[in-house]
Design a protein around this nucleic acid. Structure first.
Lengths: 223, 223
DNA sequence: CTCCAGTTCCCGTGTTCCTTGGAATACTGT
DNA sequence: ACAGTATTCCAAGGAACACGGGAACTGGAG
């Protein structure tokens, strides 16, 4: 028997990654960081947490190897440690979505009524190649520059109502945002269809897009 | 603002999956269940836990949607809830292996010295197709019947020393077992090379094999 | 109907985790 | 060197979790 102690030790180490994923606030932080690098104060504001709590969670995530922090001037920009982490988070979302009824209930409540039409990634590509549709990224501009679908137009949800004239009226709009549990694209499609446009949303988002191996355009304006 | 409460609620639900992965004993149970269905007492024995503790952990996993239990006569056979759960666990292992130095240290201690040659899945297929090698499954027989690499020969590690004559002496042996953190194939290769045979091991195991989408043969002898 | 192995529920104890406020540290720009 | 901002460290109260023992429950076999 080699089971002196090394086997439990190994699994306890592995569990550190699981523990890091075992807190809703930390998942929110991962969700945000998957969209691009951010500092602690910005993360705290976006996640609705105090700065100290956010910092503590980031330390936990860092210790679990899920995020890394690089100094950039006066702030430390945290980011996802690797593409594998994004894949891990995406897979967790999929398992939760398919196996847990309570997640479905909570998701429905958060995302709102199912009044918007959704298409998948291959259908998006087909419609764009056929010249039928234009892809619009409705996330905040900073997340667009950090990485977006090639050829997409950036119109943050905040500005969508005032920038409707930038959309060619003869084309259908395919709106996308962060991922499967992001409300931006739902709200964008509601707003667009309310103005009489043809609009659908990508069923998931940039997270699943890049985890699936699709190309991503980066505006390398990183200071 | 729709951020009344639904967003934190959603992520707290999602975190239930992470919490379930945040305990070494539960990861061991998932690791075992990924190899085939088992009852509580069997799991408790294999994981070195009391039955009550094992049962409690299984309830946690079930509540998180990671395992399911079907009654089979007097026992309840637990199994992985879906292929997505296996993919999630596999991805967690990969992230932990690539991001955490402490995991490497613990793995080295558990797996023993790096004195065995490893090949990857495509190289295994190449050698088998070329008629150079025979694939040997060194896991317990029950796990072999639950699913194995097509064409593999089942010789559990326990019986390997006494069944050496079943191996064609002119072929190289490729031993495989559960996954990246399983000792069976390491020990098998050590034993085989000590007897003068040419033997290598698959770098990972059946878990990664099936998550990658490779075919698996099942001896449908399920009760 | 009654035994029985397998399994789960209940509960008390010890441990770990989450959150927050206040203080300390690190770095930038002037 | 100094002011100012961003970030982390420290300590403590409260909440949640892990574990084991004993009792209760379930379905199948006799």
């Amino acid at each position: 028997m080699r089971d002196n102690q090394s086997r439990p030790d190994l699994f306890e180490e592995l569990a550190r990654v699981g523990k890091a994923l075992g807190n809703g606030k930390r998942l929110e932080l991962i969700d945000l960081l998957a969209q691009g690098a951010r500092g602690v104060v910005e993360l705290a504001r976006e996640a609705g947490l105090t700065v100290t709590t956010t910092s503590a969670h980031l330390q936990t995530l860092k210790h679990a190897g899920l995020v890394t922090g690089n100094r950039d001037g006066t702030t430390i920009r945290y980011r996802i440690a690797s593409g594998g982490v994004a894949a891990l988070y995406s897979q967790l979302l999929e398992v939760a979505a398919t196996q847990l009824a309570d997640v479905d209930i909570a998701a429905r409540r958060y995302l709102g009524p199912e009044d918007t039409e959704a298409i998948d990634r291959t259908e998006l590509l087909r419609r764009v190649r056929a010249g039928e549709a234009i892809v619009v990224d409705v996330r905040p501009a900073m997340e667009f520059t950090a990485g977006h679908i090639p050829g997409a137009l950036s119109i943050p949800l905040d500005e969508l109502r005032s920038r409707l004239d930038e959309l060619p009226s003869e084309l259908e709009v395919v709106a996308y945002c962060r991922g499967i549990y992001c409300t931006f694209s739902h709200d964008a499609v509601r707003l667009l269809t309310a103005t009489g446009r043809r609009a659908v949303r990508l069923a998931d988002g940039i997270l699943e897009w890049q985890v699936a191996g699709n190309p991503v355009t980066t505006d390398e304006a990183t200071h």
